[in-house]
Amino acid sequence: MPAEEIFLNLQASFAGLVKSEAQVKGYPTWTVPAQALRPVCDRLRTKFSFDYLDMVTAVDWPASAGAVTQVAASAPAAAPTAAGRDVFELVYLISALSSGIRVCLRCEIPRKEPSIHSLYGIYMAADWQEREVYDLFGINFEGHPNLKRVLTPETQQGHPLRKDYVHVPDSYD
C-alpha cells in the first residue's frame, strides 16, 4: 500500500493528522497531534506493518529562534514551520521494511513542561532513543518505565541541546 493511501486511511480516524508543510526531503512527512501519536504508531505497526522505528529525535524552536529563517524564506516549501513558535518539534522516522515505505512523523509540543506519550512497548527501539531525548532536551515521555539520563552524568545540570542551555562550569572545567 503506498504512503498516500496509508495517510488517507489514518486521516479518516485521526483528526488533525495533516501533511506537514515542512517536508523532510525524500520522505513523506506528516504532522501528528501530540495526543494521537501513540495510537497512530500503534495503527501503523499493527495494520500497516511498520515494524521498524528508525529514529526519534527532537528539535528545539524557542520563540527567539527563526530570525534567520525569515530572511531565508525564499524557499517556503521547505522552511521549518515550527520556527519561532516556542515549541519542541519531535521527529519520528518509521519504516515498513517489507514494503520499503518510510514515513516521517512530527509532533509539536509546548516548550513549557514538555511531555508526550512514549512509544515504549510498540517499538523497543524507543527505549533508549526516548531516554536520549529526555536527557538532552528534558522532554518527558509518559509511560516510559525507565526514564533516566542515558548519556550525560547524573550531575549534569540542565538539558544541553536546548537552545537556551547555559553551561555552568563544574569542577572539571
Binding site: 515542512a22 523532510v24 526531503k25 525524500g26 520522505y27 528508525d54 529514529m55 529525535t57 528539535v59 534567520v68 529563517t69 531565508a72 524564506a73 525564499s74 524557499a75 521547505a78 522552511a79 521549518p80 520556527a83 521527529v91 522516522l93 516521517c104
Partner: peptide
C-alpha cells in the same frame, strides 16, 4: 536554505543516519 533532510547509509555497524536541520 532552511529545511530538513535525512540521509542514511549502510555503515559497517548498521544503518547510520544523519538528520540535519
Amino acid at each position: 536554505a532552511a529545511g530538513q533532510a535525512y540521509a542514511h547509509v549502510e555503515a559497517s555497524r548498521g544503518d547510520l543516519g544523519f538528520y540535519a536541520v
